[in-house]
Design a binder for these strands. Structure first.
Lengths: 198, 198
DNA sequence: CGGTATTACCGACAAGCAGTCTGTAAAGTG
DNA sequence: CACTTTACAGACTGCTTGTCGGTAATACCG
């Protein structure tokens, strides 16, 4: 047979994959461990050997999804813009990634409900919120925008993007809303512009 | 004994009061129906006679809390300002009301997690979100601000206020953060100002 | 290579929980 | 005063998460 390391990774992967799939399609809350175990083809004992609790498994899936989304968004960001344009582009790229129903369900709808917003934020800090904070700080450092607090502004913008994603996925004509969101984000951001450099 | 109507209202009140108290202090998720029943001094049968499910009870408490918060906020709004200043003042008044730990826990932290954001939004539409939309529309009608979509902007601002409340209650020096939030809101709103009337 | 330790996994079981269901008693109705 | 309707009571059920003693496979060691 395989080494312990390989067995471990394979089993963990089976659990995470089945969980990611069920969470995205049926919702996190609605997915019982029982359903998950039979979907993954894994025993209850195996699951609790890999994860201390159901919540820890949810957190692991959440984190993986967050990392994947930010990676995809980062891969499409254009270069050679002003810091402010880059900030906006980054926000929109993330919004588009997270506007897919399965992703939104895990990262925005069910995730925070299942894990609590504190735990989600701790995870997000390393991903979307972290990138957003960095982009914002960069724009502040170049003098293009001025804010009372970078951390505060980043969290407020993050909240806006999450809400925007919920709106986009809930609506029929996504393109129209998407355009309105972009216009609104642009307007709001213009309010942060430094007086000298509008 | 009393009339049926009186008995009914009294029992319902006992349940709602106990629920509101436990939800605010221990959290919604952490409050079992068992604990609730003994705190309210009411039988399981009585509770399920008044509410179809635990979730319905949560929704009732949520709605009552939302109505109370918006009423308190509305009572302190100053008059005689421009529509834009009034919009900002309304936002801050609501933020202050909702920045009390018990209120925030029910309306922002645990409520949406327990009820799902869709159901919460449906309730909020009649309260905070409704007022915010109206204030925003008024500012648009007077020509002081311009937005791509009133509904969209209202929901994004609502999300900002909710996140701001979470930040305020989580921090030690609330006054400082509160001031930063006000400054940031003012800046963001200035981005919505009509070009003609800055 | 034989024995022991460690690790991955198994699955029956326990305990807590929301919700149900059969009663009962009090108030309303004609 | 019969009868209905309504408010409430509480034992019970089924589902769900997490546990725990046990097993089998790999890793380590002399």
């Amino acid at each position: 047979m395989a080494t312990q390391e390989e067995r471990k990774r394979a089993t963990r992967r089976k659990i995470m994959d089945a969980a990611g799939d069920l969470f995205a399609h049926r919702g996190i809350e609605a997915t019982t461990t029982e359903a998950l175990l039979s979907a993954a083809g894994v025993s209850r004992g195996a699951m609790y050997h890999h994860f201390d609790s159901r919540e820890d498994l949810v957190a692991a899936v959440y984190e993986e999804e967050a990392a994947a989304a930010i990676a995809r968004a980062a891969a499409r960001e254009p270069g050679g813009l002003s810091a402010r344009e880059r900030l906006l582009a980054g926000c929109l790229a993330w919004l588009d990634e997270v506007s897919r129903p399965g992703v939104a369900r895990i990262l925005i709808e069910d995730g925070p409900a299942a894990l609590g917003w504190r735990r989600c934020r701790r995870i997000e800090e390393q991903y979307s919120l972290g990138r957003l904070t960095a982009a914002l700080r960069w724009a502040v450092d170049t003098g293009e925008i001025r804010v009372a607090s970078v951390e505060l502004t980043a969290r407020l913008m993050n909240a806006v993007l999450a809400e925007a994603a919920l709106i986009v996925i809930a609506v029929n004509d996504q393109a129209e809303v998407r355009a309105d969101v972009e216009a609104t984000l642009r307007a709001l951001l213009s309010g942060l512009a430094s007086p000298s450099k509008t």
